[in-house]
Every structure is written in structure tokens, then in C-alpha cells.
Design a protein around this nucleic acid. Structure first.
Length: 289
DNA sequence: TCCCAGGTCCTGA
DNA sequence: TCAGGACATGGG
């Protein structure tokens, strides 16, 4: 991997196991959008970043080399995905799923943003989840800049979200989840140290704590653990994963908890990665639909 | 019109 | 413990 800097961009040559479409369309993040030229633009913390890829060359636009550590952490560049794939590749189905989403990486996203984002995901569709998050950001977050003709805003902080009314949150189309979001914001203010420390605690402890929030059940808690707290031994089961598992691995009426147990026994500490390959494969191929 | 979406919560048995 | 319904919103 060779890293160079030009005017307001970081260029990485010889990158492996990295595909912008796989990364941004596999359902783990909601703030990245495809541009007409095939690149993706998104917001990370208070930066607007554009990512374009030409084979094994990836260009991060609108940031400088000072942000390289942030990019490296966010895009999980220090992790060896070849090793992950060889561990997850346990049968023909997984081989196919890995081939299909070969460039997936699990991003290291912010705990607070992921908590709120996946609370919004409950009984919702991905385009709608993205819309609600953009509404919340433009209404309550900070203006960052205009990039390629579009205005960008940071994800609202817990402070910002805690002081607005439930009605205002509902105006962002969060629906019945609105009071839960406000309550979570208020609670987060006094418990943020606990939340940011979950990545250092056990899976069981983190899961139990997260589920004490109204609006966070098993599925959402596991997504928060996987996508922002480095707990990779979890296998969140949603409608898509349920379908693909019931179609390809287990009996048709297997319950979600049992699907999760089955997968976590099968994939061990790589369960989260396996789940992402399967989710992307199932959703793009419409398996079980 | 009805059904459903990266579910969770509440209720009644 | 556990099935069943409610819940905002919008697209198909």
C-alpha cells in the first residue's frame, strides 16, 4: 500500500479487499451517497469526504494528510481482510457471498451516531432511514460546507438532540421513534463515558446495557456492538439475514435467536463479517424474497 | 387498498 | 416465556 498526498486529497495505491460500492451499500452506514461519476461522498465527524476508486487505487478527496489517521481508522485499513475471508469461508454459500461482496470492510463508526441511526432503522426501509438521518443532521447538526453543489451537516450531537422537542424530531419523519431518540439523547449526556467504554467490556455486558435504552432491542443492540464497538463475534438477525439463513442454512421456522446462535457457533469471532457478506449478498440478490 | 420495511414494546395467557 | 398487535411513514 503506497500513500501519497496531493492538493486536498490522499491517494492510496495497491489497496486490497476494498470496494467503495460494497462498503457503502452493504447497509452498515447511512450517510454516504453515490455521485454521478461513481464516487461516494459522505460525512465523517465534521468532515465531508469524497471517495473515488479506480481498481486498486483509492482517492480520498476533500481532506489532507493530517486526516490520514482518521481515514485509516474509519476504513479499517489496518485489518487483514484476507485472513477474515479465509476464516469465514466455510462452505460454498459463504464462498459465493464473499466473492460477491469481496470489497466489504466494516467501518469504525461513532457510537452515538450508530445508536441513533439503528434506533431509526427499526421497522423502517433503508432509503427512509437515510432520509430521516439527513433531516436530523440538517435541522440540528452543524453546517460543514458546500461540496459539489450540496450542503453538508454534521450528525447532531446528543447535546443538540436533547434540547429539541419531540415534535421537532417528528418533523424529521422519525415517526413513533421520535420520543425514544430524545430520551436516548438526554440519557447519553450523563452516560457517554459508559457508552464509549463498551468496546473495552464484554459482549454480554455491552448487550445488556444497550438494551436498557428504550428503542434498543436485540437486533439494534447487536448492530451497535458490531458497527461501532468492535464486537465482531455477533451475528445480528434482521429480515434479510433471516431470509437468507432460512433459505440456505436452517429450517424455515427457526427463530431469530436460534439463527443467531447457529451462526455464532459456526463463524465464531468472525460472525459479524460473515453477517455482512450474507446481508449484502441476500439483499442485492433478493434471496428468500 | 393492502403490505412491508436492517424491530421494539406492551399486553394477555 | 411467548405469540400477537400497535406503532409513523412512505413506496410498491
Amino acid at each position: 500500500m503506497n500513500i501519497t498526498e496531493k492538493n486536498n486529497q490522499i491517494i492510496i495505491d495497491g489497496i486490497k479487499d476494498f470496494n467503495v460500492t460494497h462498503i457503502f451499500d452493504c447497509g452498515q452506514c447511512f450517510r454516504w451517497n453515490k455521485e454521478d461519476d461513481g464516487s461516494y461522498t459522505g460525512v465523517v465527524k465534521n468532515k465531508v469526504i469524497n471517495v473515488e476508486q479506480h481498481d486498486s487505487t483509492v482517492i480520498f478527496n476533500n481532506i489532507t494528510i493530517d486526516d490520514y489517521n482518521m481515514v485509516k481508522e474509519y476504513f479499517d485499513l489496518d485489518t487483514d481482510y484476507a485472513e477474515i475471508k479465509s476464516n469465514v469461508n466455510t462452505d460454498e454459500i459463504m464462498a459465493e457471498a464473499i466473492k460477491f461482496g469481496s470489497g466489504i470492510r466494516i467501518l469504525n463508526q461513532d457510537e452515538w451516531e450508530i445508536m441513533i441511526s439503528f434506533m431509526i432503522s427499526a421497522n423502517n426501509r433503508i432509503p427512509m432511514i437515510k432520509k430521516v438521518i439527513e433531516n436530523l443532521s440538517s435541522c440540528f447538526g452543524d453546517y460543514i460546507c458546500n461540496y459539489r453543489g450540496r450542503d453538508y451537516y454534521s450528525f447532531p450531537t446528543a447535546e443538540q438532540l436533547s434540547v429539541v422537542s419531540v415534535d421537532k424530531i417528528q418533523e424529521c419523519k422519525a415517526g413513533f421513534r421520535s420520543p425514544r431518540l430524545k430520551a436516548a439523547a438526554e440519557r447519553f449526556l450523563t452516560e457517554k463515558n459508559i457508552i464509549y467504554n463498551i468496546k473495552n467490556t464484554s459482549y454480554d455486558e455491552g448487550l445488556a446495557y444497550l438494551k436498557t435504552y428504550s428503542g434498543i432491542g436485540d437486533k439494534v443492540a447487536n448492530c451497535i456492538l458490531l458497527f461501532s464497538m468492535k464486537q465482531f463475534d455477533t451475528f445480528p438477525v434482521d429480515v434479510w439475514v433471516r431470509r437468507v439463513m432460512q433459505t440456505l442454512y436452517v429450517d424455515k421456522n427457526t427463530k431469530d435467536v436460534d439463527i443467531q446462535k447457529f451462526a455464532e457457533r459456526k463463524f465464531g469471532k468472525f460472525s459479524g463479517y460473515a453477517q455482512q457478506y450474507l446481508f449484502y449478498y441476500a439483499r442485492e440478490q433478493g434471496i428468500g424474497k
